[in-house]
Amino acid sequence: MLTLEKPKASVTPIKKINPVFQVKDLNIYYGDTLAVKDVSVQFPERAITALIGPSGCGKSTFLRTFNRMNDLIPEARATGEVIYQEWNILDPRLDVVALRKEIGMLFQKPNPFPKSIYENVVHGLKCAGVKKKAVLDEAVEISLKQADLWDETRDRLTKSALSLSGGQQQRLCLARALALKPKVLLLDEPTSALDPISTAKIEELLLELMKEMTIIIVTHNMQQAARIADYTAFFFQGRLEEYGATAALFEAPKVERTKQYLSGQFG
């Protein structure tokens, strides 16, 4: 299985589409461990890209570079370039607070704040200094509608967010991110803690949101990638093994390892 030479990655270039992120020679270390190795790739605008691969393949670490969430881990260190709107995201001088307002994130486990539904949605806006009640009220309504949660919560906006079900909580977290009108949405296995019905609802919403923003989703669920993603990237042991249009990658994987993973030979 192990070979000394660097395996050839198959990265099909995506034409005619503006790349949102241009990743060049990205390496991410945790202390001395190399978690993401030599990744170079471009992600297109207004599309859903899925990152798949077995546990510990570095796909979550990779995702968390785009909004610099790895900064929270003291021993994490990244080299290379991630170009977003002509800026290198990895530049330590970059204003991460401004970056995270443009690049929203949804986590594996719904993590609503132990506050009211309303306060959850306006958290980002308030942090950005928005104080006018009319603006906040409008943002709450629009984002809850976008997350298809408005009808269920319009009468109980002052109730604790923890009173919602798991699926509702995750949609609240989505609404919370949408309130900042992000250009990119990063999702780290957003449905792994949800039941199939809530999962379907989230997927439906992502397909709708994709028209306005770029979505990158880490998923353990290959069917999910097949259902919603326009493009899919397969990671294995920190390397990007294969990347291309989802249909092509699932039907005719070019790399042997991808074929093995998709057919369930390891995972």
Binding site: N67, M69, L72, V97, A98, L99, R100, K101, G104, M105, F107, K109, N111, P112, F113, P114, K115, H123, G124, K126, C127, A128, C173, R176, A177, L180
Partner: peptide, 27 residues
């Protein structure tokens, strides 16, 4: 206080002090 709440607040563009005062202290 669950670490995921801190991450959630940071991901919405909160500064450290905003994260502490608006999420950690209330929690």
């Amino acid at each position: 206080v669950d670490q995921s709440l801190r991450e959630g607040s940071y991901a919405l563009g909160a500064t450290r002090w905003q994260m502490i005062s608006r999420v950690v202290i209330p929690a």
